[in-house]
Amino acid sequence: MDFYFGLAQLIGVHTLLGLSAYVVLLTGQVSLAQAGFFAIGAYVAAMLTVLAGWHLVPALGAAALTGATTACAVGFPALRVKGLMLVIATLAFGEGVRLFFFNFDYQIARGDVKVGPLGGEGFRQIRFFPENGWTTLEVMLFIWIFVLLVMALLWWLDRSRYGAVLRAVGEDELAAQSAGINLTAVKVSAITLGGAIAALGGGLYAHYATHIEHLSFGILLATFAIAYPIVGGLASVFGTLAAVLFVQGFLVEGLRDLGDWRNLLFGALIVLAMNLRPRGFLDAGNLRAIKRLFWGGGRGAP
């Protein structure tokens, strides 16, 4: 059973990562910086619980705040460029963060052992959960509380005028500007929110993994982050969740028995999924169909 709880933890954390990219993607910006914010959140939260002895909840809050601040600072210069240039700029930022942690030592003595991040060795012994006697199930539930909170927040935002403005910017920047929308403010606010969500996910990841190192936060993770909302579709936050379930639950775990063939099939299935559903798993059309199924009738029925 613990295996499934562990998988659910991973899926929860990756959903947060995917949602952080979803918010930015709503404004039409492809960001490969999300893994960087995730790494910042992981290190900040872990250092606060391990080195400063904080409880995990305020540590996660501080991690999210650090992620948001960094994202806001990166967003101002980065969002002046568009398209491929933005992809490269955010990728460079993500790699910069990874290399920073590759070189980052900050250890203090705790009895006869030293704790804290140690460059390429990584940051071991992040033992908040075991020290406080949390079971795998409890940790999983704890993670999913945050996942559900963030999903609810974004679901609600989507219904606000702000959510409509984010999508308007993603649809047509020229028209949005001419309709009085401040593009810079909207894009920076979206990446700031995305930075907070990614860092929250990173903080949770560090604590259930108990060991983090720079290699975990490379390009692969950045690619996953942006792939989730693209594969899942931008019609709703549930698309991202569906994509994480598909990729982590089915492709990565479900096909483990296939050994090395899995990697081959992995790419092929992503391509197949994108061909069958070019606008993502969940688009406006099948969301409406699902609503009709559950709530019956409604408007728009032919």
Binding site: R161, V165, R167, A168, A179
Partner: peptide, 17 residues
């Protein structure tokens, strides 16, 4: 140049600036 993926209502809503 409308926001094609937004509803008619949302197109008017976002322009209230």
């Amino acid at each position: 140049r409308l926001f094609g993926g937004l509803t008619v209502w949302q197109n008017l809503w976002v322009a209230q600036n």
